[in-house]
Nucleic acid binder design. Structure first.
Lengths: 219, 219
DNA sequence: TTATAAGTTTAAGCACACTTAAATTTATAA
DNA sequence: TTATAAATTTAAGTGTGCTTAAACTTATAA
């Protein structure tokens, strides 16, 4: 049987896979805020149990079993987030933390009942799609990070990463929420920061923050 | 900081205190399904941290801090049970198990929001009162176990213990649910079993089961 | 009252998920 | 190409909550 710690490894791996579907142990250690040595230890166990493909000094891949497990955790997480935000009125910058605890403590039956209760939501409060019972994730509109936009582009906010510390509360402060329209007024070559209009106010955000906000280009 | 295991100790102690407000280590070991040695170990830690009064070879008492903590866990547990049963339609003989996991994974803020969402329920699906934010438990009507009833008594079911394995599903099978009226037709001196009418059907239950069902005497 | 049973503690040890430090391998930049 | 830095693994060790076995204390029943 898999435990809470292992569940955290699997979701963290899944959330941070690169374009090749791989992740390096060091990144995992950084994200989990533990030592590299601990990661090596656990990877051997997860490999032994068939959740990851692991070879010494190589990048890690999830097995199909590992991927299913991770996607189910994501499903649990996002359904809880919808409940917390939609039913209980918890602000969107608080739900991630609570859901991280709840996702480990709920049976699939409970999650299915909750999904029904919430009338089968398609996205979580940060705009991320919710995998269905079979792990299928609905293809969403083609979205890009704000960093990909050009001057004079108009776009609508579709998704904001929820697993970056304090990002959501900061982003909320400068007036960004899902569905909001932004107009790019300038892009600084120097540091990659972006200048834009939100609700008729000019706002400057760093490249790093811009890379965590995903939008649908309108014009 | 207190962990899941310690939370389980505190709630199990609280649920099983005797009339003198004490519990013996052995009973705790039985209820937690672990060895006596493990209990001794943990009691020293809980004592060191101020949650229980513990002296070698003596019965255990909760400190006021320990009692508050336990009552808050009970509050979490019962509020979750109401949600699972009332909002999600989970049967009353399934909610205890789910709530036992959830109670360790929810902040007080979440529980308070949930309580508001559920419109401040007074009892859980098994008839047990829900402590308020301050740990106050509403005095309920005077209830007695079925074992205390006499022949020809009529009574209404108010509470059924939820922490006895398989009791609820058994009790459900024989037609007992909250609010149901029962009529005592006979009591067997020999084994303490009780014969009664439920929905015009005669049912015999053992003394042990009768001792877990609490009723309000009508006549 | 005492023999025996039951309950409790102590001691030694285990699995787990971590740590730091040192050794080794791989990546990077001069 | 090679020196150095970064990443990874190995080794040794820690705290936690558990185990079994043995020692000890308390309760119970003849």
């Amino acid at each position: 049987m898999i435990n809470i710690s292992q569940e955290d490894y699997l979701t963290t791996i899944y959330r941070n896979l690169d374009d090749a579907g791989e992740i390096k142990p060091n990144l995992l250690a950084v994200k989990l805020e533990i030592s590299n040595a601990a990661v090596t230890d656990m990877l051997r166990k997860l490999s032994r149990d068939g959740f990851v493909n692991y070879q010494k000094y190589k990048s890690i891949k999830l097995t199909s079993e590992g991927e299913s497990y991770a996607k189910n955790m994501l499903r649990r997480h996002r359904i809880w987030e919808v409940f917390l935000h939609q039913s209980l009125g918890m602000p969107w910058d608080k739900v991630h933390e609570e859901a991280e605890k709840l996702e480990h403590s709920s049976s699939d039956e409970l999650i299915n009942l909750l999904e029904e209760f919430l009338e089968y939501p398609e996205v979580d409060p940060h705009g991320f799609p919710i995998p269905d019972k079979n792990g299928k994730i609905k293809k969403s509109k083609s979205v890009v990070a704000i960093t990909e936009l050009d001057e004079n582009d108009i776009a609508k906010v579709i998704r904001v990463n929820d697993d970056v510390k304090n990002l959501l509360s900061y982003v909320t402060k400068i007036g960004i929420s899902l569905g909001k329209e932004i107009f790019i007024t300038d892009k600084l070559e120097y540091d990659g920061s972006v200048l834009m209009m939100i609700d008729k106010k000019e706002v400057n955000i760093s490249n790093k923050i811009a890379s965590n906000i995903f939008v649908e280009k309108i014009k």
